[in-house]
Design a protein around this nucleic acid. Structure first.
Lengths: 146, 146
DNA sequence: GATATAGAGTTCCAAAACGGAACTTACAAT
DNA sequence: ATTGTAAGTTCCGTTTTGGAACTCTATATC
């Protein structure tokens, strides 16, 4: 199976990965959540090659995750912002961050924690069912094809 | 920056992606959650090349996400199972599934829904703070380096 | 006894993606 | 005239991937 064929897969996990499932894409999205909007800034912060960054930005725009906006004319300059679809990736980013923070530690390096913008209190992510409030685990839940 | 350098990055998102951030890895993990444990079965279901699958399984084992276990001697045959670290990836898989189900639709293809194993009721994933129960959004939360 | 099947890989090759560094284009500032 | 800024593009050598065939050990079948 070619990679692009994932786009047409019936499994939503595969379809999701067809958009964000490569080495750099989620890091670009992360930078956007950090408020980084410009090409050069992303390139320097990520250490990604300019070629690959340009390619990822194009794809993310084509997929509707980012929006390309001119912030000046003469010379034309563009910046990238998350669309609503892009912003909806936040839970994916947070669960990944939470998993890695616990399971892919690095000694001596500063860790990251999530805090409430309001209270400053630390936040502990937990995935629940919106209706019942029960935690979602692989034991309590079943994926069902409709 | 080389890909492997991500392992030593301070950002947990980057470290997480150094383990699961490629085209196939999360799909292999998905298969494991579905109960698929054997090489040939994964290869056929995923349509991945055998070469790449062997490589991913090796890496996932090295990273402690999967465990390789002999299920017979003569000839030696192995299967792969999720470790606790691997099982902890479930929320990442679910948030990705949920995002794609809503934002990367495919016309005419069967959708997927999550249901409770107990009640059979549909489940709607929501990421909350375990302490307060408040929903986690990019507006309410701040990532802070410690 | 010869052949087929199973299962977990390995090997080989051509095509695609990636990393690194320099180059382009359009303007502003010194 | 030269330097700086910003968003890319171009070129080239290395890595990774896709695809198909092959290996190796053992059991099952003709």
């Amino acid at each position: 199976m070619k990679w692009n064929a994932l786009h047409t897969e019936s499994c939503p996990v595969a379809r999701g990965l067809s958009v964000v499932g490569d080495r750099w894409t989620m890091l670009v999205v992360r930078e956007c959540f950090f408020g980084i909007r410009r090409f050069d800034q992303m390139q320097e912060r990520l250490g990604i090659t300019r070629h690959v960054l340009a390619d990822r930005l194009r794809k993310l725009e084509a997929d509707g995750v980012l929006r390309r906006e001119a912030y000046q004319q003469r010379p034309p300059r563009y910046e990238y912002r998350l669309t609503d679809k892009g912003k909806a990736l936040y839970p994916v980013l947070v669960t990944l961050l939470d998993w890695a923070d616990e399971h892919v530690p690095i000694q001596g390096s500063p860790s990251v924690r999530l805090v409430s913008r309001e209270t400053g209190n630390p936040i502990e992510p937990k995935l629940v069912d919106a209706r019942t409030g029960h935690e979602i685990t692989h034991r309590s839940v079943l994926a069902q094809t409709m």
